[in-house]
Simulated scan of single mutants.
Amino acid sequence: MAGDGIRKIIHIDMDAFYASVEQRDDPSLKGRPLAVGHGARRGVVAAASYEARAFGVRSAMPSTTALRNCPDLVFVPPRFEVYKAVSRQIHAIFADYTDLIEPLSLDEAYLDVTENRRGLATATDTAQEIRARILAETGLTASAGISYNKFLAKLASDQRKPNGQLVVPPGKGEAFVQSLPIGRFHGVGAVTEAKMKRLDIHTGEDLHRQSLTFLQHHFGKSGPWYYAIARGEDHRAVNPDRVRKSSGSETTFDQDHTEPEPIEAGVLAMADDVWAWCEKSRARARTVTVKIKWADFQQATRSRSLPSPVADRQTLRQTSLDLIRSIYPPRLGIRLVGVTLSNFDQEIALRDEQLGLGFDAACVNQPAAQVAHHA
């Protein structure tokens, strides 16, 4: 930490990463509304270019909805090995500036540059140089937020996308947060945003007016966190040894199913995908969750925590089958199933991170990639 006790944190976020890689590699796609994913009737958008976002196309949107919003939308299939390779290039650049790198996904990370390894005048200069190198070495643009904590740095990077950066200096965080809509806060999802609005909390300023007791009453254990961030406070360190929280895979069926055979075939295929990742990364976890998306797009999950980590593929398969069978007979047709492992054995996960067994083990957004891959 700097001599004044203030951290210097940069949040780097690639701009429309998957779509930008595709536009870089195929110049005919530049300037066109583009979706990475599959345009089939049951497909899902994995990522959208800024041209597509202007029409309301978003990741996780059904392909049919995306095409209604933007009839000229171009779909390209995802190439995850290419995205991972580019991500490794970007992280190699980060490593020239700090050892304190916390990946959030293939395309974003926190960097603690308090130590100032390169001797640059400010963290703002460091972020500018990193972004320039990313552009020169990959042909892609990135946005950056610079501040004295992680929460503010991430908010700041969102304010200047695409291809920009913003600094929130010490003493300015509280005012910066109060000016923002509550939906812009990292960690406030759609459900929490709706609940806050019902409580007449629409902005950071509104959140700041609430007492800690009020927030704990309405939001439980999250109350102190909301109280702190409304004041621009976040004491979390950048953690280069961040342990993966879950690994999952999902598939969207070509048609809705109510019969056990195709439903269970999908569950087993997803269980096999997850186990293949476990074998590759040598990670083991105790909790198995099966996700179901019904024909009306409502979702449900069923979970089971085992006494010890899942040790083999057959155990994962059987547990997944037991969970999906618990919802029989289905109340509606099922359009999507997924299998996720969580509650990882921390000692195994940390040891494998230290051995450098691949970037994926630190990438909490990997399940989203698998959603697209199987859509």
Rank of each mutant, 00 (worst) to 15 (best):
G248E: 01
H235L: 12
P330V: 03
L73Q: 01
D241E: 15
Y226V: 11
E129C: 08
E205C: 08
T126P: 07
T251N: 13
R53W: 00
D96F: 08
A123F: 11
L336C: 07
P330A: 07
A35Y: 03
A85N: 02
K30G: 06
E137C: 11
F185H: 04
L306V: 10
R313D: 13
A142L: 05
V191M: 08
Q298R: 14
Q23V: 10
L180E: 08
G37L: 02
D158F: 09
A190Q: 14
L355E: 11
W275C: 01
S222D: 14
P77I: 05
T138E: 01
R117T: 11
R41N: 12
Q178E: 14
F75E: 02
Q314S: 14
Q299I: 13
Q299F: 10
I146V: 15
D13V: 03
Q354A: 14
Y97S: 03
A66G: 05
N149C: 14
G333C: 12
I101N: 04
A190P: 09
R282L: 15
S281P: 07
W275S: 02
F75S: 00
S20E: 00
D273R: 04
G189Y: 01
I348T: 14
A40L: 13
V274F: 01
E102C: 07
H218F: 13
L268W: 06
F176D: 09
D99M: 11
G39S: 09
V167C: 14
W294E: 09
P309H: 07
N116Y: 07
K245A: 14
Y110R: 07
D200Y: 12
S247N: 12
T287K: 07
L29Q: 08
A283V: 15
